[in-house]
Design a protein around this nucleic acid. Structure first.
Length: 436
DNA sequence: TCTGGGGTCCTAGGACCC
DNA sequence: TCTGGGGTCCTAGGACCC
C-alpha cells in the first residue's frame, strides 16, 4: 500500500518502534468528601471524620470517607452502620449528586484546557494523552507537567487531585495510587516491568476478589510469583484468554488509547427499597418512576434504545435480570414502561418473593435522528411507539425543565390511566386520546 | 457486618442464516 | 443414518470498577 518512508530514503530492515506514549491519569482525592465539604463549608467542611453515603438507619453504604475516617478502617462500599461502629464520632452526609456532577464537569473542562486529549473514565478519574506535546511544553519533563496540571486544576476548581504517569493507562493508573494524596508519580518508559514487581496483585485493576482467590489458592501472592508460573499451567487454571490478559497486566503492558468521546453503552436507574416490597401494584409504580428516569436521560442524550432490561434483587440478595430487544428503537416513557412491565411479570412469575431492589436499563442505542423503518403490518407486540407518544414524553421533559419535579406527578397520573394492565400487555395501546 | 447506584466487559449457549 | 462449519445476534449471569 502506501510506503511509510519516501522511496529515496534507505528502507530500514526493521521498522523503528513508535516512541512510547505519555499518558497521565488524574484522580480526584476522596472526591465525594471534597465536594460535600465545598458544598457545605461550615458543616461538612469543618468535620474531620466525614462519611459520604447512605443513611445509617436505611440500607446505605459508604461512598467515600475522609482520610481521617479511613484511619479507623472505614472503606468505600462498607455498610454505613458498620462504618459508624468502627468510627463512632463520624458524621454521615448523603451524596450531593448535583454538586458532584457539576464539580466533575468543572474538573474535566479545566483538564481540557490543559491537555489535547482528555477522556473521562468516571466522575472523578480522567486519562490524558500528552504524546507529542514535548515541543509545545518546551521539553518539560512529565513530572513537571503532572505538577503543573495538579496546581492548575486546584486553582480553577478547588479540587485536589493526584496524578500518575506512564507509557500506558495501566501504568498511569497504578502510579496514581503511589501519588495519593495530592501528589504526582511518574514511571519512566522502560521501567514498567520493574514497577509492576512492586505492586500487590490485589491492586492490579481487573483482579478482584474472585480472581485473587483463585491465584491465592494456587499459592501466588506477588507479581513475581505469578510471572514464575509456566504459561501452560496458568492457561489451564484460568483459561487461555484470561491467562493472556493476566500476563499482559503482570508485565505492565496495556492499552494506551485515550478516547475523548467514548460512547455510552447503557443507561440505567435502580432503587433499593427501605423495606422489601411485595405488592405488585406498588412495584409497578416504582417501575414507572424508573422508566421515566431512564427515559429522560435517554432523550436528553438524543438517543433511542432497542434493548430494555429489568433487574430485581430478591429479599435474599439473589439478583435476576430479563432483557428484551425490539425491532425498532424507542424513546417514550410509555414504550419503555410497557416492555419493562412484561419483563417484570416474567421475573415475578419465576420467583414470587419480597423484592429488595428494582431497576431498569436501556441499551443498543441509535441516534434519535436516525430514520425509522416504516412498518408494513400492524405491530403485534404493541411495543412500537407512535409519534404522539414520543411528543408526549418530550413535552413532559420540557414541563419538568420549566416547572421542576412537581410536573412528574402529573405525568404519572396520565400514565397510570393509559397503561394497559399486564394481562393485556400485548394488545396495542388503546388510542391517542389519553394525553388530553 | 448485612450488603448503593452508576457503569463496562466477558463468557457461554441457543437461535438463526447461508 | 447419524447428523458441517462458519457468522451474527440475543440473553443470562458474573466479575469488576469507582
Amino acid at each position: 500500500v502506501c510506503p511509510r518512508v519516501p522511496p529515496s530514503a534507505p528502507t530500514p530492515d526493521v521498522q523503528a518502534p513508535p516512541p512510547p506514549r505519555r499518558i497521565l491519569h488524574v484522580d480526584c482525592d476522596a472526591f465525594f468528601v471534597q465536594v460535600a465539604r465545598l458544598a457545605d463549608p461550615l458543616g461538612a467542611g469543618r468535620t474531620p471524620l466525614l462519611i459520604v453515603g447512605g443513611s445509617p438507619s436505611g440500607r446505605g453504604v459508604v461512598t467515600s470517607a475522609s482520610y481521617e475516617a479511613r484511619a479507623y478502617g472505614v472503606r468505600s462500599a462498607m455498610p454505613t452502620g458498620q462504618a459508624l461502629r468502627l468510627c463512632p464520632g463520624a458524621t454521615v452526609v448523603s451524596v450531593p449528586r448535583e454538586a458532584v456532577a457539576s464539580r466533575s464537569r468543572a474538573v474535566r473542562e479545566a483538564l481540557q484546557s490543559l491537555a489535547p486529549v482528555v477522556e473521562a473514565a468516571s466522575v472523578d478519574e480522567f486519562y490524558l494523552d500528552i504524546t507529542g506535546t514535548e515541543r509545545l511544553f518546551r521539553g518539560e519533563p512529565l513530572d513537571g507537567t503532572a505538577d503543573r496540571i495538579r496546581r492548575a486544576v486546584l486553582e480553577q476548581t478547588s479540587v485536589s487531585t493526584s496524578v500518575g504517569g506512564g507509557s500506558n493507562r495501566l501504568i498511569a493508573k497504578l502510579a496514581t495510587s503511589r501519588a495519593k494524596p495530592a501528589g504526582a508519580f511518574i514511571v519512566p518508559p522502560g521501567d514498567e516491568r520493574a514497577f509492576m514487581r512492586t505492586v500487590p496483585l490485589a491492586d492490579i485493576p481487573g483482579i478482584g476478589p474472585a480472581l485473587l482467590g483463585t491465584l491465592t489458592a494456587k499459592g501466588l501472592r506477588t507479581v513475581d510469583d505469578a510471572l514464575a508460573v509456566e504459561p501452560d499451567w496458568m492457561a489451564r487454571w484460568l483459561g487461555a484468554g484470561r491467562a493472556d490478559w493476566l500476563l499482559c497486566r503482570l508485565e505492565g503492558r496495556g492499552d494506551d488509547e485515550v478516547d475523548p468521546d467514548r460512547a455510552r453503552k447503557s443507561i440505567s436507574s435502580e432503587r433499593t427499597f427501605t423495606r422489601d416490597e411485595t405488592d405488585d401494584e406498588r412495584l409497578d409504580t416504582h417501575l414507572l418512576i424508573l422508566a421515566e428516569s431512564v427515559g429522560r436521560t435517554l432523550r436528553a442524550q438524543a438517543l433511542r434504545a432497542r434493548t430494555v432490561s429489568v433487574k430485581i434483587r430478591d429479599h435474599d440478595f439473589s439478583t435476576r435480570q430479563r432483557a428484551h430487544s425490539l425491532p425498532e428503537a424507542i424513546e417514550s416513557d410509555r414504550a419503555v414502561h410497557g416492555v419493562a412491565r412484561s419483563l417484570l411479570a416474567d421475573l415475578r412469575a419465576a420467583r414470587r418473593v419480597p423484592v429488595r431492589l428494582l431497576g431498569i436499563a436501556l441499551g443498543a442505542f441509535e441516534p434519535s435522528g436516525s430514520p425509522r423503518q416504516l412498518t408494513l403490518f400492524e405491530d403485534p407486540t404493541g411495543t412500537t411507539e407512535s409519534e404522539r407518544e414520543r411528543e408526549l414524553s418530550r413535552a413532559v421533559d420540557k414541563l419538568r425543565a420549566r416547572f421542576g419535579p412537581e410536573a412528574v406527578a402529573l405525568a404519572r397520573v396520565a400514565h397510570r390511566s393509559q397503561a394497559p394492565p399486564p394481562s393485556t400487555l400485548h394488545a396495542p395501546p388503546s388510542d391517542d386520546s389519553e394525553d388530553s
